[in-house]
Each structure stands twice: as structure tokens, then as C-alpha cells.
């Protein structure tokens, strides 16, 4: 679905944000891209809908080279929900805001209405369809911005820091949305600093540093102990569940459910031993 080959991007000031990225994302995958600020994550995703163009290398979207295709055309395949909802919300009603992108990609009449209603329902804002977006709090405006991308029905949905400002219920809702999207064959890619969200929600993790792909694997591989030096190289830490699994000798447990299952199956340690390990000042 997304194919990047030897992708290089140098900004006008001379910053080499991407330094030869090779990446293949297949249809229906759930992929998280992680890395410290400046590692090239956002630069990479902006190539997928043509907002940035490669300095060298190529991007192929759904079998067609992105080069030469207009942003408005690529947006029919790749929908990107940006981090800050206030940089896109302009309409006086939620319904109009959500309809904007869907109309731009060609939906009209009943199909448009259905897409708007369904996505507002998915993000839990159907009851406020006629309210002003600025009557909502930040976290719900973020869900509104997400809805406006979902309504476009693009085969690829890219979410830039979707959990920022969300409480536990908001994160759970976003997790459910991500899973439901891939159940119907849509591809979901996120850029996130929320390692717990990444481990719990995505089946593939791409670690970036200095404009390159440092690691590419399952959450168990990306957050397992052998990967920790690579994570540290880009100022990241494995989620707590993964760290505890390693400390307690349970193997890779990137998710909390995995940790609990491993604990349930592990030989029962003496409480004092376990408490001692948990309280250790050395995380490694």
C-alpha cells in the first residue's frame, strides 16, 4: 500500500531529515512509527500525501508513484489527522467540519450524510453534531479532527500523536477505532510518543533515528531487551510492562495483558523476592 525506497529529504536550511528510508507497509496493517523529536517521523508521513516531495528516492502509494500526483488526489488514498486539531477546524458546526474532507474526496448526498453520521458516532460526538466545535474541550476537538479524516474513507489513515490530551476513556476509544479500521481492511499508521498506546494497539513498530529506520518488528521485538540500546539511541524507553517482563525474567511482555498472562503462567515467586525486584533502582 505504501512503498518508500531510498527516501531522502533535505529541508531548505540543509537539515537532512530523511537519510535513505526503505519501508513497505502492506494493506490492512497497523503500524506505529516511533522516535525522538527530529528523527524524521513527521517528514516521512508528509511524503505520503505529497505535502513534502523527496529530495531523492521514491514513494509509491497504492501502486502508483506519488511524484506528479497532486496533494488533493493523494488525499483520496492517504488521510492524515494532524496533531493539533485547532489547525484544521474552521466550520461552525461539527457536522459541517466532518463533511469538509468527505466532500473534497467526492462524497455527496446520502452517502456524505451517512459518512458524517457514522464517523461522529464512532468518535462519540453524534449527539453534538450541530454544536460549535469550539464548545468542545481540546480532547474532544481532537476526536472531531479524527472523525473528519475517517469520514473521507481513505484506505490509509495516518494519526499524528492521536492520544495527546486524551484521558483513559479517550485512549480506549482511539484504540477501538484503530482496531475497527483494520478489521475492514484499512491501513492505520500512527506517529506517537505514547509507548503504552503503541504496544497495546499496533502489530508492527518502526523505530526511527536520525532520518533512518533503526528497527522494524513486532512490539515484542521492538520493545524486547535486545532492542533497548536502539531505543535508547533515539531517547525512547520500552513501556513499563515490557521492562517489568524483562526484570522478572518473563520474556518479552510489551502489553499489560501479556505481562499478566506471563505472570499467571510463571512459577510463583516469593512475594519478598518480587517486591525486591520491583523496587530495584536499576531499571535494566
Amino acid at each position: 500500500m505504501i512503498h518508500c525506497e531510498g527516501l531522502v529529504h533535505v529541508y531548505p536550511g540543509g537539515t537532512r531529515a530523511l537519510d535513505g528510508v526503505d519501508l513497505e507497509i502492506r494493506a490492512g496493517e497497523r503500524v506505529a512509527i516511533i522516535g525522538q523529536n527530529g528523527s524524521g517521523k513527521s517528514t516521512l508521513i508528509l511524503h505520503w500525501n505529497g505535502l513534502l516531495r523527496p529530495t531523492a528516492g521514491q514513494v509509491v502509494i497504492d501502486g502508483r508513484a506519488a511524484e506528479g500526483q497532486r496533494v488533493a488526489h493523494l488525499a483520496r488514498t492517504v488521510g492524515i489527522a494532524f496533531q493539533d486539531p485547532d489547525r484544521q477546524i474552521f466550520a461552525g458546526r461539527l457536522r459541517t467540519e466532518v463533511a469538509f474532507g468527505a466532500r473534497n474526496v467526492g462524497l455527496r448526498g446520502a452517502a456524505l450524510q451517512r459518512a458524517v453520521d457514522e464517523t461522529l458516532d464512532v468518535v462519540g460526538l453524534r449527539g453534538e453534531a450541530d454544536a460549535n466545535p469550539y464548545d468542545l474541550g481540546y480532547s474532544r476537538r481532537k476526536l472531531l479532527a479524527l472523525a473528519s479524516i475517517l469520514a473521507m474513507g481513505t484506505p490509509v489513515v495516518v494519526l499524528d500523536e492521536p492520544t495527546t490530551g486524551q484521558d483513559a476513556a479517550g485512549v480506549a476509544r482511539i484504540q477501538a477505532i484503530v482496531r475497527s479500521l483494520t478489521e475492514v481492511g484499512r491501513t492505520v499508521v500512527t506517529v506517537s510518543h505514547d509507548m503504552r498506546f503503541v504496544a497495546e494497539t499496533f502489530e508492527r513498530v518502526v523505530v526511527m533515528g536520525a532520518g533512518r529506520v533503526l528497527l522494524d518488528g513486532s512490539p515484542a521485538e521492538a520493545f524486547g531487551e535486545p532492542a533497548w540500546p536502539s531505543l535508547a539511541a533515539t531517547n525512547l524507553e520500552a513501556p513499563l510492562a515490557a521492562q517489568l517482563g524483562v526484570r522478572w525474567g518473563l520474556g518479552p511482555t510489551p502489553t499489560e495483558a501479556g505481562l499478566v498472562a506471563a505472570l499467571a503462567g510463571a512459577p510463583r515467586a516469593r512475594p519478598a523476592d518480587r517486591a525486591g525486584t520491583f523496587g530495584s533502582s536499576d531499571p535494566r
Binding site: 488521510g79 489547525r87 473528519s148
Partner: peptide
Amino acid sequence: ERALAIQAAQRARGLDTEG
């Protein structure tokens, strides 16, 4: 700077600024 970021967000929703 903000206008450029907003333009990028709207173009990502299919707003045609090249047509």
C-alpha cells in the same frame, strides 16, 4: 508559519490548492 501548517492540514483533507 501557522497559516502554512493550517494549509497543510486542509490539503491533507483534500482541499485543492493546486487546481
